[in-house]
Amino acid sequence: MEPVFAVLTGLFFAFAVYLMLSKFIIRVLLGVAILGNAVNLLIFINGRLLREVPPVLAAGLDVPAGPVANPLPQALILTAIVISFSFFAFLLVLSWRAYEALGTDNTDRMRLAEPETSPLPPEGY
């Protein structure tokens, strides 16, 4: 099944990148949300796929009875999901505040920190 999901992951990346190349912050944000899923899928599939057997030991067993899904990528992804959600929320609130303060959602016009015509730095000592 891995090649099928490789194609799907590629699709996730392509759409995430396309959205993030936009000039409008909301689109960039949507792209970031999809990118998080794309990366999680990437890690998940890198760890190989196994259907329907979670890495949980039945009661009384010390080691899994048969093959189980790879637990390592799951542990990595679990924290990654929560963290990417935190950052998604942060970016969301940040762009909302930026929109309120600067009156635009076009990143090209958000030039408070890097003004279009900044003077040359001083050449003295």
């Binding site: 490789a6 990346f13 392509a14 936009s22 990437l42």
Partner: peptide, 25 residues
């Protein structure tokens, strides 16, 4: 151009993932 970049990135990731998963784990 944006679509071209996006498709190139997606394609790259797809090929990368295929290459990785065809190797023994």
């Amino acid at each position: 151009p944006d679509a071209a970049i996006a498709i190139a990135c997606g394609l790259g990731m797809m090929l990368f993932l295929m290459k990785v998963t065809e190797a023994p784990f």
